[in-house]
Design a protein around this nucleic acid. Structure first.
Lengths: 201, 201
DNA sequence: CGTCTCCTAGATAGATCGCTCTAGTAAGGC
DNA sequence: GCCTTACTAGAGCGATCTATCTAGGAGACG
């Protein structure tokens, strides 16, 4: 164990995450992963004895956690959910433009590939989505919405984001993301307006 | 040419469409396609001299046209867009349940896979999405909305559907689709309400 | 110094990939 | 009958896939 234990392992995970989200799980070979990670081939199976599937599952969970932190940063406690929504979609659109429409959702590409064919990986994707929804529900609840309304709004938010990513990547246009941003910002605003009205009675 | 010209070709396209949407383009082998289509291997390259990519592109456009017809059937001229939206999402949820969460969007899985790696296929997906959005925009315009509002609502509709498909397939739950259905039904209702209010002035 | 553990390094196995090739069959036109 | 065209049928090619295997390098510890 050197001073930098297993930096190779991290490089493999990070590069895999980028490749998987851009070209999918089946479309990415382990040779390509180790080449782009500048890692020896043997190291992949040293760190991931379960092979490509173990790596895939771990990449899903790791990417999901990173993106979850981003979500948390926007919808921070005390922040205005309306402004957060607008900013989040705007940031997603900017990232997409900057990466030539490559870096959208880190797990959606793999999620669609594996949902009907690979149960462990499907489960990993489901756990990530559940985590995002739960976190968003929690934050919206803290901001004043009922539990039921929070959860529905969280699904709307994340669903609209995922769908806009699909369209924006294929169309090479941020219009879907911008429209979704406006639409969801309005939905969040209305949800809180309705809540305030109810509270005033 | 017999009485049934090229039924084999159709079987290849149909089976490919089902396999691609469930396990992706890279995840589906040509051997598996001809096996499941009960087609001779040679026939695939007879009908599709451009190989797997030509087949993929044609499958995308064919699937997109079929699904576009479904969209047209719900948002038929004269139909109430609010009821159509509710019915469309409900039907999508039912199909998903009936197919064990396999048959969602016929092209989204492939779209995410190829958007950054295969320009001809990305273009095919973009053409399909553009067609859906244009058709929905047209129908909403006929129902009374401004062109700008129609287009935005069309993007919202299709985007919300795609995103809910991603979540519902991975979570094996129709909750995302149901939430999206309610959310979009409300958005369509409000768009027409605002339009009527504007017209009354 | 020897030894143990962790990691590197890559050759190679065995299966599968997309695709090409040749041969054969069946129906329509002459 | 014969020839042409359309399609069937599958063997097999080179490349690539995931995964295993053996061997060696480097630091920690006695």
């Amino acid at each position: 164990m050197a001073g930098m234990p297993a930096a190779t392992r991290e490089r493999i995970v990070e590069r895999s995450a980028e490749l998987f989200r851009r070209q999918g799980f089946a479309g990415t070979g382990v040779k390509q992963i180790v080449a782009e990670a500048s890692a020896p081939f043997g190291s992949l199976y040293h760190f991931f004895p379960g092979g490509k599937e173990q790596l895939g599952e771990e990449v899903i969970r790791w990417s999901g956690a990173i993106y979850g932190q981003l979500l948390d940063a926007f919808y921070a406690p005390g922040a205005d959910p309306v402004a957060a929504t607008r900013a989040f979609f705007a940031a997603a659109a900017q990232t997409l433009r900057e990466t030539d429409y490559a870096d959208a959702c880190p797990i959606a590409t793999v999620a669609l590939e594996v949902s009907s064919t690979n149960e462990p990986m499907r489960k990993a994707c489901a756990d990530v989505f559940d985590g995002w929804v739960d976190a968003a529900t929690e934050r919206l609840g803290e901001a004043g919405l009922s539990r039921k309304r929070s959860r529905a709004l969280a699904f709307s938010l994340i669903g609209a984001l995922e769908g806009a990513f699909v369209l924006s990547r294929a169309l090479r246009s941020t219009e879907p993301l911008e429209v979704a941003g406006e639409s969801l910002t309005a939905e969040v605003r209305e949800a809180f307006a309705a809540q305030r009205k109810r509270a005033r009675r």
